[in-house]
Design a protein around this nucleic acid. Sequence first.
DNA 1: CCTATCACCTGCAGGC
DNA 2: TGCCTGCAGGTGATAG
Length: 277
Amino acid sequence: MPELPEVETVIRTLEHQLQHPTIKEIYVNYDKIIDMSDKKQFMEIIKHKTIHNYSRLGKYLIFDLGDYVWITHLRMEGKFFVQNKDEEYDRKHTHIRFLLDDGRELRYHDTRKFGRMYVYPKIDNMESYPCFMHVGLDLFDPNLTGTYIYQRAHHRSITLKQLLLDQKTMAGIGNIYADEICFACQLHPETIVSHLLKKDYEKIVVEARRILAGAIKAGGTTIRSYSSSLGVDGRFQLELKVHGRKDKACFVCGTTIQKTFVATRGTYFCQTCQKRR
DNA sequence: CCTATCACCTGCAGGC
DNA sequence: TGCCTGCAGGTGATAG
């Protein structure tokens, strides 16, 4: 599912639905999701903890457990469901369940099993958690500016699309929004970033924030008909300008939208509106 | 240091 | 219908 807007929607929805439950028990059916050498330790630490606060960094969900933090990345298809503990569920794809003190369960569902969870003793500077080793500033972090990205990127020999997907440069953008950002900036996704000007970088930040903020407002993007998780079906797919529109007419100029692969990722663009630098 | 490629998993759509 | 291939909103490890 998730890029930044979907993760933001999930964390807000979970906070609204769960508030501040205490986890009474944890049931693990597939333990590779727990990305730690000692899975038992993860379970022991989580048990009896209360979720005090909900937040996010890039595409990571962060649950504040007081003296510990529990971090989850949904990767491609991870979903959380909140259901009464007696309610039936998909046993084939539900890998971890958290029994709560209010009689409900928080259930982690993940068809492809790519998602990952971590738990760490809480520290002040979040960026020091091992799972954030390759994660930089969140797209909405005020310290992230055009100048900041320019300094980090202008000497590199990668394409714009690759830069947008690089979580160490800007955390939160994924394949769908990367295409939308390139379109909004009127830049070809294969533009080499060293050819971009400082003002291009400024525009990239502005457009990226504008598009992702709009997507958050719409509750995220839901494409491909996966079963929806509670409250997590968005409406932003109605506003996508290029992604998924192969062979359709560009909304701006009518040119047929092209699909190619950039660094193995399906990439959509308008060859008329989007120019290489 | 850098970039490219593979590996991790499963389900589904499309072609034959 | 059944089989095979390619593709999917991600990222870490490894190879060059």
